[in-house]
Design a protein around this nucleic acid. Structure first.
Lengths: 222, 222
DNA sequence: TATCAATATATTGTTGACATTTTAGCGTAT
DNA sequence: ATACGCTAAAATGTCAACAATATATTGATA
């Protein structure tokens, strides 16, 4: 009902695309829910034209599914699909680590360490519990993918897969588990990057994500 | 100028999306060329509304780039970007092989062999030269990805990356090189799949694609 | 009461028109 | 001849209205 303030984005379709994507990731548009064009166009204060363009872009990002004459639904991931994406992520982030290892600078590694320290402090101050930033470790993964220097890899992971996984986490309101273990693994990865050991960095990252996947499996096996 | 016959797809946006995508992949809309909305809407006999939706979907597939108030251009890949995609492909198809190895049936392997035999015959009959089907080996890769059982992996490779690579091949009018060597490698991969050796299958596939990438590097280094 | 058909409502698909911005063409001045 | 600014044309962004389809509601019947 309330019309949100649109950013300075030049076209309405682009602006609304990002707004809806944010709404989906935040869970304001729950997985499986129908996308009502008249309602949303009223809500964002635009006509259905640009709105439909935005929906089509979301379809391209796999965040919504469009059926002819039935409209669009926010995609809903089951556990199997989440595991599928984890497998892809494991492969691609391993690749990112291997690539990054061959070109990271000392400054890059320092930034990575800073991220980890910062993240750790936030957790310490909360006595091991997560405080507000449920996805702190994503910064770390983002940066590594960026340091790989592979633009397409970056877009693929950060513009598509991560969003899908966040969607799943919202869906299951899942908290990140085993934070202390994750830190150790993160630091080991930076160690490998610092010594320019691509193979090791790849192995450690794949193992790291594989652990997360295992813990996910355990979660819904009980 | 000539209006094409639209398939039985129910919405114009979906139909035109596929038509334009095909046109791009065939090179009828060359990389870097501008997408003129009035012209295309006339050509396909539709109004600009559904056409723009189709363009937005193409944007999601990374096949076109849209700039505000300047329209859409067919994406143009330089050699670096093609290599980036090859690196991703290497990683993901390796994964596909590992996954496939754990669940392929004898019948699946027979289908793979049949594909290879068929492909080889076509080449034999042309005395080692390619005849019409420049992408015969893609069938093989398609099938393996399908046998991996990972739906998201299939969509990612077959609905996005392969299209992008085809676009690059059209751009450079590149013929597949070293066909005989490729066959040998393909058969070795099926061997590994038959013995359910996931690790080996992954290794062989990654090496196979890496070879293709190397030959690509050599091509534009001279 | 439950089921089915017919109607009514709402939503999606599509179009053409209008506003804004960019691009192309033209003439003038240096 | 080149560069600059102005005008005209074209293309993009947006909207509101119409058509087609699906959904919800009502009423009748078993």
């Amino acid at each position: 009902m309330d019309s949100q303030v649109q950013p300075k984005s030049s076209t309405l379709a682009d602006s609304v695309f990002e707004q809806i994507r944010t709404a989906i990731i935040r869970g304001e548009l729950p997985p499986g829910s129908k996308i009502n064009e008249p309602q949303l166009s009223k809500q964002y204060g635009i006509s259905r034209g640009p709105l439909r363009e935005a929906i089509r872009r979301l379809e391209g990002c796999k965040l919504v599914e469009v059926k002819p004459n039935a409209g669009a639904k926010v995609v809903s991931l089951n556990s199997e699909q989440a595991l599928e994406i984890y497998a892809i992520r494991e492969s691609l982030e391993g690749l990112a680590c291997r690539l990054a290892a061959s070109q990271v600078t000392a400054a890059d590694c320092a930034r990575l360490r800073a991220l980890l320290v910062n993240h750790e402090q936030q957790i310490q101050s909360e006595h091991g519990r997560m405080y507000y930033q449920k996805e702190g470790d994503l910064d770390f993964h983002y940066l590594i993918v960026q340091l790989s220097g592979n633009t397409h890899l970056f877009n693929l992971l950060c513009d598509e897969l991560y969003h899908l996984l966040r969607l799943y986490r919202v869906q299951t309101s899942r908290q990140p588990s085993r934070p202390r273990q994750a830190f150790k693994e993160h630091h080991q990865i930076v160690d490998a990057l610092e010594s320019a050991d691509g193979e090791l960095a790849e192995l450690l990252m794949k193992r790291h994500i594989s652990s997360a996947r295992e813990s996910l499996i355990n979660k819904f096996n009980q």
